[in-house]
Design a protein around this nucleic acid. Structure first.
Length: 572
RNA sequence: CGGGCUGUGGCGCAGUCUGGCAGCGCACUGGUCUGGGGGACCAGGGGUCGCCGGUUCAAAUCCGGCCAGCCCGACCA
C-alpha cells in the first residue's frame, strides 16, 4: 500500500473532545472518526486493526471448537419479554416499532437469539455444542465516553456453550478462560481474571478479564504474592485486630459543637481516632430505612451491601429523611438505643469496645460504646471497601488496588435462558432436561482501544505485531530520487509477495513529517530508505517499541524483517 | 437523569463582555527553493459563525427556545 494513495488522515493536534490516550491517538492517527456520541466510523487503518483483532479472536475460539454463526441485529421485542430482559435491560435497549407497528429492538447481546436457534437441539447426543458469532451490538449507554472504550454501537464476539450438565459447562467455561488469556496476550495486554457479580446477565458464576489502566471504570484488588484478584465490588480483605482494652468502658455523652465529620471528631478535644469511631449511614433499601454501621476510617461498598441484602433498590437517605428517623442531622448520628430500625453492622466492628459515635442529638457524641452491649445489631455483614495495603484474604500479603478496564466477561448461565425459552434435550433415559448454557463475550473495538492504552508512548501508538495495520512501514526519504524509490519498491513488493502488510510512505513530504506520522500510527517496524543508504548499501531498521535502530545491509533487510515479524519477542 | 463546559473553514483556536468588512495557526491548491526528525518564500481556494425565533438601521456578538458534543456524578456487559 502506497501512503500517497491511501486515506490516512493524521492530525497534528489532539482533538478537542478527547481525554483518553487511546481516543486521542486513534483519532490523530487516522483510525477512527466520530459520527455522534458513542458511534464511530472505522477508517481504513482502524478497519485493518479491527479485522486483525477479530482474526485473533476467531482463531482462538475456533481452536476450542467454536462454530461461527451470524445472528441478526434486529429482534422482535417479544423474545426479550419472554426472559424478562426487555424490562431489566430497557434503559440500554434501542427499541422502536417497525412500520407495521410491531415492537422491535436492536440486539444488545444475543443469549435469547442463540437460545432460540438451539431449540433444534433435541438429543443429549448432540451436546456439547459451542456456537459463536462476531456481530454488532447496540446499547444505548447513558454516557458514552473515552472514544472506543464506551460506545453505543460496537462489535462483540459472543460465544454460547450448550451442555447436558454442570460438569460439561465447567469444561467449556475453563476452555474459554484459557482461550481468553491467549487472546489478550496476543492483543498485547496483560489481563487479570477476577470473580465478578453477574449483574443483569443472569446466571450463577462469572469471571471478568481486567486490564490495569488509568481510564478504567472498575477497581480491582490484586495480590501479587498469590495471584488473588477481585473486583472491589466483591473483594474482601483481612485487617489487623484493634485492641480496645485501654479505652473507657462506660458510656458517656459529651458536647461536640460544630463536629460534623469523622475527621472533625479525630481532632476535637476528647474525640477519638477514626478507627475508634462508628460511622452511621442511613440508606433506604426497598423503600425501608436501614442503618449501616462502619468503622470511621472505612468506606461502604454499595455493591457488597446490595449483594448482602439481595436487592438493587438502594439509595442514601436525603437529609430531610434523617432527622425524623433518628432525631439528629448527619454528623451526630448513632445507633445506640435504636431498636426500631434495621441495623447492618460491618464485620470490622464486631466485638469492638470503647467506641465513639453520634448521640442522635445534634452536637452531642457518645464515648465508651461497646458494640455487643450497646447496639442492637440486626445483622453483621462484610460491606467494607477494600483498601490498598489490606491483607489478601487468601495469603495475607498486602493487596494493591488499581483502576482497570473490563476486556472480557465469561458467564455460567446455567438454565436461566433455557427454561423460559424451552431449550431442552432428551437424556439417555428419554427424559426432558434443560440445556445448561454459558456465554462468553469480548468487545472488539474496546480491546483495540485498550491495546492502545497499554501500548503507546509520547510519540504515538505501538501496535503488537499481530494486530498492527501493517507489519512494516518503509519510509522513502527522497521519493523523487529514482534509485531510492526503486529500492524501496523492490523491498515492498518482495514483502507483500510473501504475505506481509507493507505501508510504503512515498509521499513528497519532509522526512520529519513522515517519521512522526510513522511513529503516530504505530507500525512496529520501520525501514528508512534514502539516497545515502541506497548508495552505501545500508538501510536503517527501526524498532518502534525500543526506539533503537540498526544498520542492515540492503541485501539482508528482507530476511531480517521476516525474522522480526515472525517472532514477536525479538528486537531489531 | 442532575451539575459544569463548549459549538466560528478539514483540525486547533481568537473574536462574543462593549452589536458595525469573519480572523489566526496548521492542513489544502499552484509555483520557486529545500531535502535523514513536523523547512522557507510567493500567489491562492475554502466558513448556512449548531438550529429556530425575537430585538435592532445593523447580530458570530444582545434576548428566548431548542439541538448537539465533551467532562464530573448517577446508571451500566
Amino acid at each position: 500500500m502506497r501512503w500517497s494513495q491511501a486515506f490516512i488522515p493524521t492530525l497534528r493536534d489532539d482533538p478537542a473532545d478527547s481525554e483518553a490516550v487511546s481516543h486521542k491517538l486513534l483519532v490523530r492517527g487516522g483510525y477512527i472518526r466520530q459520527l455522534m456520541a458513542g458511534v464511530y466510523s472505522m477508517l481504513p487503518l482502524g478497519q485493518r486493526v479491527r479485522e486483525n483483532v477479530m482474526r485473533v479472536i476467531r482463531e482462538e475460539i475456533d481452536a476450542i471448537g467454536g462454530q461461527e454463526f451470524l445472528l441478526p441485529q434486529l429482534h422482535p421485542r417479544e423474545i426479550w419479554d419472554r426472559t424478562g430482559r426487555a424490562e431489566t435491560m430497557k434503559d440500554i435497549m434501542m427499541s422502536f416499532d417497525d412500520n407495521k407497528g410491531s415492537p422491535m429492538v436492536l440486539g444488545p447481546t444475543h443469549e435469547e437469539i442463540f437460545a432460540t436457534v438451539s431449540r433444534e437441539l433435541t438429543s443429549y447426543k448432540q451436546l456439547p455444542q459451542l456456537w459463536y458469532h462476531i456481530q454488532t451490538k447496540f446499547r444505548d449507554e447513558a454516557r458514552p465516553k473515552s472514544g472506543l472504550l464506551r460506545v453505543r454501537e460496537f462489535t462483540m464476539k459472543d460465544s454460547y456453550s450448550f451442555d447436558v450438565d454442570q460438569e460439561g459447562l465447567d469444561v467449556q467455561f475453563d476452555r474459554h478462560f484459557d482461550a481468553y488469556h491467549r487472546i489478550f496476550k496476543r492483543l498485547g495486554m496483560n489481563a487479570i481474571a477476577v470473580r465478578a457479580s453477574s449483574g443483569a446477565m443472569g446466571g450463577e458464576d462469572s469471571v471478568e478479564f481486567m486490564v490495569a489502566s488509568e481510564v478504567g471504570e472498575d477497581e480491582v484488588a490484586h495480590c501479587e504474592a498469590c495471584g488473588f484478584a477481585a473486583n472491589v465490588e466483591t473483594a474482601t480483605s483481612v485487617i489487623p485486630q484493634i485492641s480496645d482494652t485501654d479505652g473507657p468502658t462506660e458510656i458517656k455523652e459529651f458536647d461536640t459543637p460544630g463536629v460534623r465529620t469523622i475527621a472533625d471528631l479525630e481532632t476535637f478535644p476528647g474525640g477519638a481516632p477514626a478507627d475508634r469511631q462508628i460511622k452511621t449511614l442511613v440508606y433506604f433499601v426497598d423503600g425501608e430505612p436501614v442503618l449501616i454501621l462502619m468503622r470511621g476510617d472505612h468506606q461502604l461498598q454499595d455493591q457488597k451491601l446490595m449483594d448482602h441484602l439481595q436487592t438493587a433498590d438502594l439509595r442514601p437517605a436525603q437529609p430531610e429523611e434523617i432527622k425524623p428517623l433518628l432525631g439528629a442531622d448527619a454528623g451526630s448520628l448513632g445507633a445506640v438505643g435504636v431498636t426500631d430500625v434495621r441495623i447492618v453492622a460491618d464485620e470490622a466492628l464486631r466485638d469492638r469496645l470503647a467506641m465513639t459515635t453520634g448521640a442522635n442529638t445534634n452536637d452531642r457524641h457518645l464515648s465508651g460504646v461497646a458494640m455487643a452491649r450497646d447496639i442492637t445489631v440486626t445483622e453483621w455483614a462484610d460491606v467494607r471497601t477494600v483498601q490498598p495495603g489490606d491483607g489478601c484474604p487468601t495469603c495475607g500479603e498486602k493487596l494493591t488496588v488499581f483502576p482497570a478496564i473490563e476486556c472480557g466477561h465469561i458467564f455460567k448461565l446455567g438454565t436461566f435462558y433455557a427454561e423460559p425459552l424451552g431449550v431442552s434435550v432428551l437424556d439417555e433415559q428419554g427424559k426432558t432436561i434443560p440445556i445448561v448454557m454459558g456465554s462468553y463475550g469480548i468487545g472488539v473495538e474496546r480491546n483495540m482501544a485498550v491495546s492502545v492504552e497499554v501500548n503507546h508512548d509520547d510519540k504515538g501508538i505501538i501496535w503488537p505485531m499481530e494486530i498492527s495495520p501493517f507489519h512494516v512501514i518503509i519510509t522513502v526519504v527522497r521519493p523523487d530520487d529514482e534509485a531510492t524509490l526503486e529500492a524501496a519498491e523492490t523491498l515492498s513488493n518482495a514483502l507483500e509477495a510473501s504475505g506481509f502488510a507493507v505501508l510504503l510512505d512515498d509521499r513528497n513530504e519532509r522526512p520529519g513529517v513522515k517519521f512522526n506520522d510513522a511513529e503516530l500510527i504505530g507500525v512496529p517496524l520501520r525501514v528508512t530508505v534514502g539516497p545515502r543508504g541506497v548508495q552505501s548499501g545500508i538501510l536503517e531498521l527501526l524498532d518502534r517499541r525500543t526506539g533503537q535502530s540498526v544498520d542492515v545491509a540492503i541485501d539482508d533487510v528482507f530476511d531480517r524483517l521476516v525474522e522480526l515479524i515472525s517472532s514477536p519477542g525479538a528486537q531489531a
